[in-house]
Design a protein around this nucleic acid. Structure first.
Length: 242
DNA sequence: GCGACAG
DNA sequence: ATCTTGTCGC
């Protein structure tokens, strides 16, 4: 796992530890590098990844990255990354709070999934660069944003049937979809992160969904994240920044 | 100014 | 996200 060098030339050496002003500049730089072109070869996708972040009493954030086989959804790899949660949570700047831990977890992944799922927005963001897009461009990954709640935009509630969806618009443009992954259950908000199209993101979000509201990658990552935290995993595969 | 506001 | 138990319903 390495940084997308062209991007890093612009935002090294501290991609996440920045001021709001610098964060805005970085987001602008990353946004222009987002690709919404679908390049995945569906038949060759046999591995998908998911990342979720939880917070520890210690003030650290812990990111859990999981790799699942596709379409079996068997757990193939788990990596953990911890870092001080120094940047505060500010809607529109989540990447800067969770980025450090995510970078740690991603850097330890050995098996490379063809597609990554993030718990947050992709391009459905005030400046078009949500968590999935931000990390996607930074690490040159194909990514999709899977959010449990909308951040921006307008949409009509999709029909209460499993698989139903409606477009999510923001400033005249479609930036994602409100998707009903289960009958009579609240929808999730799907938007492309990087190197994938709107339709591709929608299709893969549904293909990666099993019997639960959330797609398997982020669902499993979240489940493990909560489990590891509860068991006080201050040891294990995860180390610390600094 | 008021309300909204991923995790 | 996090603080927190049981409980109603598909």
């Amino acid at each position: 796992m390495r940084y997308n060098s062209p991007v890093m030339e612009k935002i090294l050496p501290f991609p996440f530890r920045v001021s709001i002003e610098e964060a805005l500049t970085i987001q602008k730089e990353l946004e222009r590098r987002i690709s919404l072109h679908y390049t995945l070869e569906d038949a060759s996708v046999n591995c998908i990844g998911g990342i979720d972040v939880s917070y520890l009493k210690s003030g650290f954030s812990m990111a859990v990255a999981v790799v699942l086989s596709f379409p079996e959804f068997q757990l193939l790899e788990v990596q953990v990354g911890k870092a001080p949660a120094s940047f505060p949570y500010i809607p529109g700047f989540l990447s800067f709070r969770e980025g450090p831990a995510i970078e740690k977890a991603l850097s330890r992944i050995k098996k490379e999934p063809q597609l990554w799922f993030f718990d947050g927005q992709g391009i459905a963001h005030p400046r078009g660069v949500g968590l999935a897009s931000h990390i996607g461009v930074l690490f040159d990954l194909v990514s999709i944003g899977i959010a449990k709640k909308p951040l921006i935009g307008e949409f009509e509630p999709p029909p209460p049937e499993k698989g139903a969806y409606s477009p999510l618009y923001y400033q005249e443009k479609q930036v994602g979809f409100a998707v009903r992954t289960r009958k009579n259950v609240k929808p999730i908000y799907v938007s492309p992160g990087h190197k994938i199209s709107l339709e591709g993101a929608l299709r893969w979000a549904l293909k990666a969904t099993g019997r639960y509201r959330l797609p398997e990658p982020t669902r499993i990552a979240h489940q493990l994240s909560q489990k590891l935290k509860k068991e006080g995993q201050d040891l294990g595969p995860g180390n610390t920044v600094f």
